[in-house]
């Protein structure tokens, strides 16, 4: 069964860059690289590695440009998939990849002192909570909540169904809620201050 044509807002730039247009290639890099950087940084938590992955994803884009078929897929979705897979590969090579079935059940950390956490401590808590998630759950959370991709696109990136994405998200959110329960008040306060600023 053939897929319906997919509208890609970057199709014009892709076509021009495919013909060797440097200006179009530079515009493509500017358009897509910030999101690739954010995804890879959130998944790897390492600036140097995130930079490598972002560059590698762009190099792979140049390689497929001459044969890219407009209308078959959105180039951004393809790039997110490449970036996520490159991050997973690096995590696997470093022995840092955690599958869902290997992850321990999240535990309720219990009540904390009612002292307000310093901003950096709060950041550490959020980082630790995200880092503790199995990698595919973290990827689903990052792509959905940070990058605001639709569940269908997240499914394409991770190579799973929408139902499986929702399952990953539900488990990821539950683990985050438990891990961040003691910091709930500080997080909400930080959110209110952020909105007010």
């Amino acid at each position: 069964m053939s897929n319906p044509l997919v509208f890609d807002p970057l199709a014009g730039l892709i076509a021009k860059a495919g013909r060797g247009d440097r200006a179009a290639a530079a515009a493509l890099v500017k358009a897509v690289s910030p999101k690739l950087w954010r995804i890879s940084w959130r998944l790897l938590r390492d600036a140097a590695e995130a930079e490598d992955v972002t560059q590698e994803a762009l190099i792979r884009l140049w390689k497929v440009l001459p044969t890219w078929q407009t209308g078959r897929a959105r180039v951004e979705t393809w790039l997110h998939q490449v970036t996520t897979n490159l991050c997973f590969d690096r995590l696997r090579k470093a022995g840092r990849f955690v599958d869902e079935d290997q992850a321990p059940e999240p535990l309720d950390p219990g009540p904390m002192p009612d002292a307000r956490l310093h901003q950096s401590a709060l950041r550490d808590c959020v980082d630790a909570a995200l880092a503790s998630l199995p990698d595919r759950q973290r990827a689903a959370i990052v792509l959905t909540h940070y990058e605001e991709l639709a569940a269908k696109d997240v499914g394409e990136v991770l190579g799973i169904s929408v139902d499986a994405v929702e399952s990953l998200l539900a488990r990821g959110r539950r683990a985050l809620r438990l891990a961040l329960a003691p910091e709930k008040a500080d997080l909400l306060q930080a959110s209110v201050e952020g909105h007010a600023a």
Partner: peptide, 15 residues
Amino acid sequence: LAYVLNHASPVPEMP
């Protein structure tokens, strides 16, 4: 959730 997490732990500036 996204706002709270992003506010508490922003991504460093891209090089």
